[in-house]
């Protein structure tokens, strides 16, 4: 019997294991720079942005994305589409904040553009009862194809703040810009009457003469967003964004609103951990 194995110990492959990227991953970024978020509310301050953060964690079922926490409830067979149920923190109330972090403004950005000519009585944010932040629960449908993404979402207040609804349709595309990752997003949101009434309506809760009371209807807000990032190294980069949201007529007609939209912009140096 010819038994001759060339055995000289196990043939150990020294190559390390190469697992696919884990399905769960943290994304933690911080940026230092300057920008502002304008407020359309008369008497409220524009908000300065200096240090901003971007925090996200995605698992196979659950995720956390900045102020939103949710779970995936459906995936399409090709994995391009998914549906999520989520809870998020709505920050409309920040537009009524009159505590400016900084008085520094960027002259070439339209934060301090002239107020819309007042055809309504001059009601200041300081006369209003506090507008509180709200917590929304919602569902979203997302479909991605190539460099484009379409999404639809509907949310409802679950915090008893305004008891209103918010529905959004958005289209995002990646723009082919050399050395930069640029995404442009067009969105339109519908804010229900309850939402608009709580934030932009004026009634007996406010310290305003009854002749200036105002009751808005529901309305649409179209918005544009351009976000650009450029990697300087695996950790360091540049982030720039500009967003504009046009308010619906029923909101701009409120005596406490003196601008037609909300503008925000920021430029900074980012670091990803």
């Amino acid at each position: 019997m010819a038994v001759a194995a060339c055995y000289a110990g196990a043939a150990e492959d020294s190559a390390s294991y190469s697992q696919p990227t884990p399905a769960t991953a943290w994304q933690l970024g911080i940026a230092a720079g300057h920008g502002q978020v304008s407020s359309p509310v008369r008497g409220a301050a524009n908000r300065s942005l200096w240090l901003i953060a971007d925090v996200a964690w995605y698992g196979s079922t659950f995720y956390l994305d900045n102020t939103e926490a949710g779970g995936f409830i459906w995936d399409s067979a090709d994995k391009r589409g998914s549906a999520q149920a989520y809870v998020t923190y709505n920050r409309e109330a920040q537009l009524f904040d009159n505590h400016a972090i900084s008085d520094i403004t960027v002259p070439f950005l339209p934060f301090n553009s002239a107020a819309r000519p007042a055809s309504t009585p001059d009601v200041q944010a300081q006369q209003l009862a506090s507008r509180h932040y709200a917590v929304h629960a919602g569902a979203r449908l997302v479909y991605e194809y190539a460099a484009s993404r379409v999404s639809f979402s509907i949310e409802r207040d679950i915090s008893g703040t305004h008891d209103g609804y918010l529905a959004t349709a958005g289209y995002q595309m990646q723009l082919p810009v050399p050395y930069w990752q640029v995404s442009a997003t067009a969105m339109v949101s519908w804010y229900s009457q309850h939402f608009n009434q709580y934030y932009y309506g004026i009634d007996t809760r406010d310290n305003v003469s009854p002749q200036y009371h105002y009751r808005p209807a529901g309305g649409f807000r179209p918005a544009l967003d351009i976000t650009a990032t450029h990697a300087l190294s695996p950790a360091w980069g540049v982030v720039v964004f500009a967003r504009y949201t046009a308010l619906s007529d029923t909101v701009t007609a409120s005596p406490v609103v003196d601008k037609n939209g909300i503008f925000s912009a920021y430029a900074g140096l980012s670091y990803h951990f």
Binding site: A11, D13, S18, A23, G29, G35, V37, N66, E68, Q172
Partner: peptide, 26 residues
């Protein structure tokens, strides 16, 4: 007698993309 690492490579990365745009905290 033999021990070899088996690796997997994917033609298409299907890890979940973020459902919200980055830097949307503010």
């Amino acid at each position: 007698l033999i021990s070899k690492v088996l690796q997997i490579k994917a033609r298409r990365d299907t890890h979940r993309p973020r459902v919200r745009s980055p830097w949307r905290l503010f």
